[in-house]
Design a protein around this nucleic acid. Structure first.
Length: 186
DNA sequence: TATACGATCACCT
DNA sequence: GGTGATCGTATAC
């Protein structure tokens, strides 16, 4: 089942945790890949100094102010891309960074089943985007449409199986770096 | 126009 | 633990 916009149009911390266990599906040409989301981070509002929108509304951050359920993809360090899902109401900038996928599979049309891909670890936002060919062409993509890239409900994750932590790589964000807005399936 | 730096990763010690 | 690759974006001039 593909979640509708309402699923994303909620409190970002709730969405970030509910995305754990969901499948990210990516169709590239004839190939279709799928991975289970195991790690997310929340970036919420202009007051969150780690959030790109803390600088206000700019061409870059505009997408975060848009409709929930759309992708916010940006380039970082000149070599990697990061995939985020926009949350909350329109004009309120917030998103969930997809940091890690597990049990990556490719759909085999001839057998009509999902086959595990060996020797692949998508345990980082940059690696994940590189493998799934996610770049800025997908910035603003509506992931509720079920084309090219979308999400599907996966396994149910118990609250007790979710570990919260400080976010990664945001030492510049002053007191905001202490927020436990990183979520992982433990 | 110029400059500083980052929501990362691979590789080094 | 630390560093370099590499370029879009924001900010300063």
């Amino acid at each position: 089942m593909i979640p509708k916009i309402k699923f994303y149009q909620r409190n970002t911390l709730d969405v970030a945790q509910d995305l754990l266990g969901c499948f990210l599906v990516r169709k590239i040409g004839k190939k279709t890949f799928r991975g289970m989301i195991t790690e997310t981070e929340a970036y919420i509002g202009e007051d969150d100094l780690a959030c790109h929108a803390s600088k206000g509304r700019t061409p870059r951050t505009e997408m975060m102010y848009g409709d929930a359920g759309h992708a916010y993809v940006y380039m970082i360090y000149g070599m990697y891309h990061c995939l985020n899902i926009v949350t909350e109401n329109k004009d309120y900038p917030a998103a969930v960074l997809i940091r890690g996928l597990a049990s990556v599979r490719e759909f085999k049309a001839n057998k009509s089943e999902w086959e595990e891909i060996k020797d692949i670890k998508l345990d980082g936002p940059g690696k994940l985007c590189k493998f799934l060919k996610i770049d800025r062409k997908l910035n603003g993509w509506d992931i509720t449409r079920g084309e090219k890239m979308w999400l599907e409900k996966g396994i149910k994750v118990r609250k007790s199986d979710i570990k919260s932590d400080k976010r990664i790589g945001i030492d510049y964000a002053k007191h905001c770096r202490e927020y436990l807005w990183r979520f992982k399936i433990s």
